[in-house]
Amino acid sequence: MAEQSKFEVTTRTVNSLHTQAKHYFAKQKFNKSIKNYQQSMTVLNMSLPKDKNEENEIKMLRIKTYVNLAVCYYKINKPKHVINMCENLDYITDINKHCKALFYYGRAYEMLGKTEDAIKYYKMAKRLEPKNCEIGKALADMDRYIKKSAATEKDLWQKAFKLEPQTKISNYNVDAEFQVAAREMCQYFADSEEYMKHNLPESISSDGVGFIRDLCAEFEGVVLQENGEGKKKTFSIIKQGPVVD
């Protein structure tokens, strides 16, 4: 451990691990890449820099490691891990000045269906790099998603006035229009191959929640998600996206 804590040994070991990690990442072996970055962080935490220059170098390697881990976790569909890496990064540097970290903050929140948070971080990243095409595309995609979701929701509720209820669920006090709209939405989500999320209105009744929960069970990949507790509890219909191994 004494030998490993030396600055020269630390940097040599970390750079070697990062090279291996990049090799695995290029081959889309993201879990192996993550393992190498995690090992490099362990080595960095053992380091005992002797002066300001060494301390700054170790800091830069930590920043690089956290950012690369965030990217890897994004690739294996673990948004909460991405957020955790960005939060760790924020302890050692001002993340508001780090475009790539802000961008992957946005990516993580987009995966979680938190549209407003995703857009906020994308815009923060865009301010740092106005000409970044990847950030611009992410914002454009979010804009299209919001418009499509609004149009879909409007269409579903309009259809509720034209169709008869098809569900046999009868244990809840909900009217025919609600039943039709809920079924149409679940069917739309089930037919999609992408991750989707629709927040239920805060005014929805307990019967409405129960009805939708049972209804979601009829559709593969569609679930009712509960968020928060007590009076702050909210509900969302989720279409689970494909899981990347």
Rank of each mutant, 00 (worst) to 15 (best):
A101M: 04
G221I: 07
S203L: 05
L224G: 06
A140P: 02
S170Q: 12
K59Y: 09
K162L: 15
A182V: 00
T11P: 05
E218S: 13
L44N: 02
R12D: 11
K168V: 08
N15L: 15
I169Y: 08
G113C: 03
G208K: 02
K97A: 11
F7T: 07
S16R: 15
G221H: 08
S205N: 01
V209K: 06
A26M: 10
Y24N: 06
A21K: 06
H98K: 10
A217V: 12
Y109W: 03
K27D: 10
E129G: 09
K233A: 13
T10F: 00
L102W: 07
I34M: 10
D51K: 08
S236T: 05
M124F: 10
N132C: 12
F178K: 03
P201L: 08
M111I: 04
I58D: 02
H18A: 12
Q158K: 15
G230I: 01
V82T: 11
I95Q: 04
A151F: 03
E177Q: 14
D191K: 02
E57P: 01
N171Y: 11
M185D: 00
G106N: 04
Y172G: 07
T93Y: 09
M111W: 06
P242I: 15
P165D: 04
A217E: 15
L17N: 09
N36C: 15
K6A: 13
T13E: 08
F103D: 05
K52Y: 11
E202K: 13
R183W: 11
I238V: 08
L61N: 07
G210Q: 05
S40H: 05
T42A: 14
N31K: 13
N84S: 11
L112R: 01
C72I: 10
Y91D: 13
F178G: 00
N45I: 05
D90R: 07
L17I: 04
V14N: 04
N199L: 09
K154S: 08
N96V: 05
H98R: 08
K32Y: 13
A160T: 04
K32D: 15
S236Q: 00
A125H: 01
Y73G: 01
I204M: 05
I169V: 09
N227M: 12
K50D: 11
E164K: 12
V174I: 08
Y91K: 15
S170K: 10
C99A: 14
I34G: 06
N45Q: 10
E87I: 09
Q28H: 14
K148Y: 01
M124W: 06
R12K: 15
E8Q: 11
E193M: 09
L224R: 01
V82R: 05
Y104L: 02
R213V: 10
L102M: 09
N56V: 10
P130H: 03
A181Y: 04
K64R: 13
T115H: 05
A140I: 06
E110A: 15
V223C: 09
S33T: 06
H98A: 03
L69A: 09
R127N: 15
I135C: 04
E220M: 13
V174M: 05
H98E: 11
F235I: 07
D117R: 07
T65M: 11
E8P: 06
L48Y: 09
V43W: 04
D191L: 02
P201C: 03
D90H: 03
V9S: 05
S203I: 08
Y104V: 05
E134A: 14
K114T: 00
